[in-house]
Design a protein around this nucleic acid. Sequence first.
DNA 1: ATGACTCAGGAACTGAGA
Length: 263
Amino acid sequence: MRIATWNVNSIKQRQDHAVAWLKERQPDLVCFQEIKCVDEAFPREAFEALGYNVAVHGQKGFNGVAVLSRMPFDEVTTGLPGDEADVQSRFIEVVVSTPKGALRVCGIYLPNGNPPDTEKYPYKLGWMARLKTLIAMRLAYEEPLVIAGDYNVIPAPEDVHDPALWMGDALFLPKTRAAFREMLNLGLTEAVRATTDEAKLYTFWDYQAGAWQKNNGIRIDHLLLSPQAADRLKGVGIDKHTRTWEKPSDHVPVWADFDLGSK
DNA sequence: ATGACTCAGGAACTGAGA
């Protein structure tokens, strides 16, 4: 069972890349972020033609998340609970059936939070607190659970090319990293760090200033696993090569394999 | 170096991204 996440930075701009990557990597389930379109505009047919079921939670202009799954959806819910006034489309949760039972996946696009001296940063921290509350509830189910997406969190200094340069950034501030640790401390395992201590593993390179050419990247796209998922983790990958494609997303896919039947 | 790039919206630019 292969589960992936990719911030595509507009699904309309990246449809061909998405199709090419799906054919190549063959994930069973993938979470997309920043689809940047309303539900009706999502090119679902292109993915249904590849055998995927499609669940979309979009909005006009920016944000937006979606899940593609080879398994039919037993449940789909959208929107992160805890703030009725939050209209940004950043959360989708699905349940599918595997040969070894139910699998729950949350696809998230966590707020950026910059600049930190504006209302954007408290929104980010509030969103993280709400996510923590949701995760705590879901962990009580004691089932395989994967929370995958663009966290906009650099967990540690080895996950950024120049930590000093990012010290005051909303992605790397102590409060941001503390809130991320709080989620891990509920009992979650971060898939990449469960399998390697290697530094300079990045998932995002800015379009500007030759960041890709200089390998000035950051690692902000993560898969967090419940104990029941972590105990079945078989491997992890970062598809860095997609960043070399023409007109790429600034993020690359991250995926993890689980012993949940099939693949 | 206050830059650099790419997207959506909507018709010249701004806001957002990270």
